Amino acid sequence: MKIILLGYMTSGKSLIGKKLAQTLDCEFIDLDEWIEKKEKLKISEIFKKRGEIYFRKLEHETLKTLVLDTKRNVISLGGGTPCYSNNLDLLINKSDLKTLYLKVSMTNLVDRLFKEKKNRPLVSHIKTKEELTEFVGKHLFERIPFYTQAEFTIDADRTENEIIESILFKLF
Rank of each mutant, 00 (worst) to 15 (best):
E130V: 11
I167P: 00
C26F: 14
D96R: 07
S11I: 02
N93L: 13
E131R: 06
D69W: 13
V104C: 02
L63F: 03
E151I: 05
E131W: 10
R50Q: 11
R143Q: 01
A21V: 09
F141R: 03
I53S: 15
V104R: 08
S76E: 14
S44A: 12
I144P: 00
V110E: 01
L168P: 00
L97V: 14
T99V: 13
S95E: 14
S166E: 14
K170D: 05
K115Y: 10
K129L: 13
H125C: 08
T148K: 03
I164S: 10
E134L: 13
K57P: 00
G79V: 14
G17L: 11
D30V: 15
R72L: 13
S76A: 15
T153Y: 02
N87A: 06
P82I: 11
I75V: 12
L63P: 00
L63M: 02
H125E: 14
F152S: 02
T133N: 09
E36I: 06
E134Q: 07
L6G: 07
T133A: 14
A156F: 11
K64S: 04
Y147Q: 01
I126R: 08
L15S: 14
R120A: 03
E134Y: 09
E52T: 11
T62L: 04
A156Q: 07
Y147E: 01
Q149A: 01
T23W: 09
T133Q: 09
I43N: 03
S14G: 13
N87P: 00
T153M: 07
F141C: 03
S14K: 08
E61M: 07
L100W: 12
V110A: 01
D69G: 04
W34T: 12
F152L: 02
T153L: 02
R50K: 12
N87I: 05
V104L: 09
E52S: 07
L6Q: 15
T70G: 10
H60D: 10
T159F: 10
V104S: 05
K37N: 07
I163T: 03
K118D: 09
E151S: 05
